[in-house]
Amino acid sequence: MDMIFDILSWFFILAGSAFVLIGAIGVIRLPEVFTRSHAAGMVDTFGTALILLGLMFQAGGFNLVLVKLVMIGFFLFFTSPVSSHALVRAALADGAKPLAEDGSNLEGAYKEKGEK
C-alpha cells in the first residue's frame, strides 16, 4: 500500500513541479500583463493543486496534516481567481491596452445595442 502511495506521490509532485516551471517560463515569455496573467493562473491552480495532492498521499492516513493540506488547497482555489481578476481589472482601469483582437464578431458573443 505504501508503495502505491509513493508512486502516486511521485507522479503528482513531478507533474505539479513541471506545471509550476511551465507557468514560470510562461510569465517570462509571454508579451504583456494580460497574457502573463494566464500563465500565473496556471501556477495558482494546477501546479499547486497537483503538488498538494502529492503531499496528501504522504500525510499518513486521515489526520490533521491531511485536513490542513485540504484547507490550503481550498483557500488557494477560492482566492486565486479573485486576485487575478483584481489585477487585470486594476491594469485595465490604469489604461493598459490589452494586446488583443476585438472578438465581438465571434459566434455567440454579446453585442452592444446599436452595433450590428
Binding site: L21, V27, I28, R36, D44, G47, T48, L87, A90
Partner: peptide, 28 residues
C-alpha cells in the same frame, strides 16, 4: 524566474503579478 520578471517589469502590474506568483509558490 518570477524574480526575473519582477525585475524586468515593465509595468507595475507585471511586478505585482510576479510577486503574487512568488507568494503562491512560497506557500507550497
Amino acid at each position: 524566474l518570477g524574480l526575473i520578471r519582477a525585475y524586468l517589469g515593465p509595468t507595475i502590474y507585471d511586478r505585482i503579478l510576479a510577486g503574487n506568483m512568488i507568494g503562491t509558490m512560497t506557500v507550497i
